[in-house]
């Protein structure tokens, strides 16, 4: 069994694993500087997780990957060739389930300088693809999955992690970002074929720099729509952010006031598109990001 500490601001993870696939992809995606392959017991980590490959009776033909956090196994096991994707989803779950110092919205966040755009959306909406389009235009990624908003402010703390690409979007994004670093492909997961993309060097470099939200974009990919933009009222913006917030119930009134403050101060748009470049161009041209 190997032990490694992954340092991703603002959280670190002590990972136990017997999966060479996991170790190889961790090093490829995060780089050696964010990994401690020889931690001792005094080295701090916020969370302890395991990704363990086991071969059990009844599943002799394919070993199974189990993700655990403090003895809790939140997911059903997956085939071992999906172990790295499972670890990434597991790390998202750990933070979404335990973090209480921020309002956590299921959203991508991208920034230019210190001004940020929030892209809250359910899975399958094209959020990660849009996110990569922004990166291809020089934006830095703060998160592909979890927006960490400081309560009662518009400040977002970066939680720089890889973007999760699925199915057709994999080749599309490889066309935009041919020199980026990609994980091994995990085929036939419950989300289809999945690849994780390492954020740009610019994103890693600014991973300690908070940004301030100015805009909310609800992206929806539709092959038949070039780019249809509808402004949202503050009430509609609030509803979208609330529906995608993991921990508003735990934060209580503080969570509620954080989201309502955000809706009061952000411009909201619903954008249906088949051309992500147009989405980026619209935001850059109309919100002073150019």
């Amino acid at each position: 069994m190997h032990e490694v500490i992954l340092n991703t601001h603002p959280f670190s993870f002590r990972i136990h694993t017997n999966a060479p696939l996991v170790l190889k992809n961790l090093e490829r995606i995060y780089g050696a500087e964010r990994l401690n392959f020889s931690p001792n017991s005094n080295d701090f980590a916020h969370y302890n997780v395991s990704l363990v490959i086991e071969r059990k009776l009844g599943r002799l033909w394919k070993p199974q990957a189990h993700f655990l956090c403090d003895e809790i196994e939140p997911f059903v096991p997956m085939d071992s060739d999906k172990a790295y994707a499972m670890l990434e989803w597991g790390l998202n779950w750990v933070v979404a389930a335990h973090e209480v110092n921020h309002a956590i919205v299921h959203a991508a966040v991208l920034a230019k300088e210190d001004k940020a755009v929030l892209l809250p959306a359910p899975p399958g909406s094209g959020k990660s693809t849009t996110c990569c389009a922004f990166m291809a235009h020089g934006w830095r990624l703060l998160s592909d999955e979890l927006a960490l908003i400081t309560p009662n402010t518009l400040t977002v703390t970066p939680f720089v992690r890889p973007a999760c690409l699925k199915n057709k979007s994999i080749e599309v994004v490889k066309g935009w970002l041919p020199n980026s670093v990609y994980s091994d492909i995990a085929r036939n997961t419950h989300k289809g074929d999945v690849v994780h993309l390492s954020p740009s060097e610019h994103s890693w470099k600014h991973r300690y720099h908070d940004a301030v939200l100015t805009t909310v974009v609800m992206p929806t990919y539709n092959a038949n729509t070039y780019c249809d933009i509808t402004p949202l009222t503050q009430r509609q913006t609030f509803q979208q952010v609330f529906d995608n917030c993991f921990n508003v119930g735990i934060l209580g009134q503080e969570g509620f006031s954080t989201l309502s403050h955000a809706a009061d101060n952000l411009e909201g748009y619903q954008i249906t598109f088949n051309n992500a470049d147009e989405v980026v161009a619209f935001i850059e041209e109309t919100h002073g990001f150019a």
């Binding site: 503050q234 009430r235 609030f238 309502s260 009061d264």
Partner: peptide, 11 residues
């Protein structure tokens, strides 16, 4: 409750 300043409603 919170009323939004663009008069779009309240929550």
């Amino acid at each position: 409750l919170h009323s939004f300043c663009d008069s779009s409603g309240s929550v």
